[in-house]
Computed example of a mutant assay.
Amino acid sequence: MYVAVKGGERAIDNAHAWLAEERRGDRAVAEMSVAQIREQLSLAVNRVMAEGSLYDPDLAALAIKQARGDMIEAVFLIRAYRTTLPRFGASEPIDTGAMTCDRRISATFKDAPGGQILGPTFDYTHRLIDFALAAEGDAPDAPQTTPQTGKTPHITEFLAREDLIQTEPAGTETPRDLTREPLDFPADRALKLQALTRGDEGFVLSMAYSTQRGYGRNHPFVGELRVGQLPVEMEIPELGFAIELGDITVTECETVNQFTGSKTEPPQFTRGYGLVFGHTERKAISMALVDRAMRWQELGEDNVGAPAQDEEFVLSHSDNVQATGFLEHIKLPHYVDFQSELELIRRLRAEAMATRAQEAAE
């Protein structure tokens, strides 16, 4: 056993060295810097920050580089690092109405109060490969625009004035922190939203898509989608007031959903909600759709058995780090387990053959 363990250690050390060599690639090609990843692969950086629950573009870019572009491995690295950080306190709730918007659109009102801002988007591109990018030339200068400042009202506020959309209850307690407490069921809405924010984008997208295809009676409109910068503030007990720590970029989505009423609620529109670190539109919209699907019990709707309505199914399987760990552990040695299975199959097979031989003799 000692020799086998020592041999295994040498093999692992060599595997790590080989991994580092593969990560570097052809040394005739210039190495990609963390700054380049941060600035030119910003959507990948945003995803790693969101699913890693840590807002640090430089650290996320470094994790992507270390993981050779494997997003889930990069998220794993970020979460592992996050557990080593001290916790000094909690920031004040952010006010998304005060967002400096780079992008703000509504699919429900053409002339939205405060205006629509198309911003940087793939929505109207032709999805054709741009071979000019292979020339590594400078990108054309974007037109100069004046950032939107001041309060930008939410679209749903105008529906609320006419009592056409469900009123959200005001929170009275500090939400539980999913990064410090285990997930258990039933989960309140704040905990569900945290889990969806950290959830794998592909999984949350597939759940959202299922609701659009009829598995959950979810007919959404994007009431508003906004991307922009927000200040983060923290109250300092010694000072007695909050100070600004810095700005973060977030994506917020509110969906407006049809609702014909129930035994407890009148006919009105209802909401789905998504808020994610960085410019992460697909995730925020998906999150809003799944959030609405899981609210069936709160709204007095029938559970039609759709996967997206099952909070335990959705939240237990959305965490890509947890899923990856459980999936990939089967690559590791299971020699003893397999040998016991092998012996069992041999014994059952011998017993079955003996029974058949006996039946044939009779």
Rank of each mutant, 00 (worst) to 15 (best):
E9Q: 14
A11W: 00
E21A: 15
R23C: 06
R27V: 12
V29Q: 13
E31W: 13
V34F: 03
A35E: 10
Q40W: 07
L41Y: 06
A44D: 07
M49F: 08
D56M: 10
D58V: 05
A60P: 09
A63F: 00
A67I: 11
G69R: 04
V75G: 04
F76E: 01
T83F: 03
L85T: 03
P86D: 02
M99F: 13
T100V: 06
C101G: 01
R104T: 01
I105S: 03
Q116K: 07
L118D: 10
A139P: 03
P143E: 13
T145E: 12
T149F: 09
T152Y: 07
T152G: 01
P153N: 09
P153E: 13
H154S: 06
H154V: 00
E157Y: 05
E162P: 01
D163V: 07
L164C: 09
P169Y: 06
G171R: 14
R176E: 07
Q194M: 03
Q194P: 04
T197N: 10
S210H: 10
R213S: 02
Y215D: 09
R217H: 11
F221G: 09
R226P: 02
L239K: 13
G240H: 12
F241Y: 15
A242C: 08
I248R: 01
T249V: 15
C253R: 03
E254G: 06
R271F: 06
R271M: 09
E281Y: 08
A288Q: 03
R292T: 02
W296L: 05
N303D: 11
A306R: 01
Q309H: 06
D310N: 14
D319H: 06
L327V: 02
E328M: 13
V336I: 07
E343S: 11
L344R: 06
R346G: 04
T355S: 05
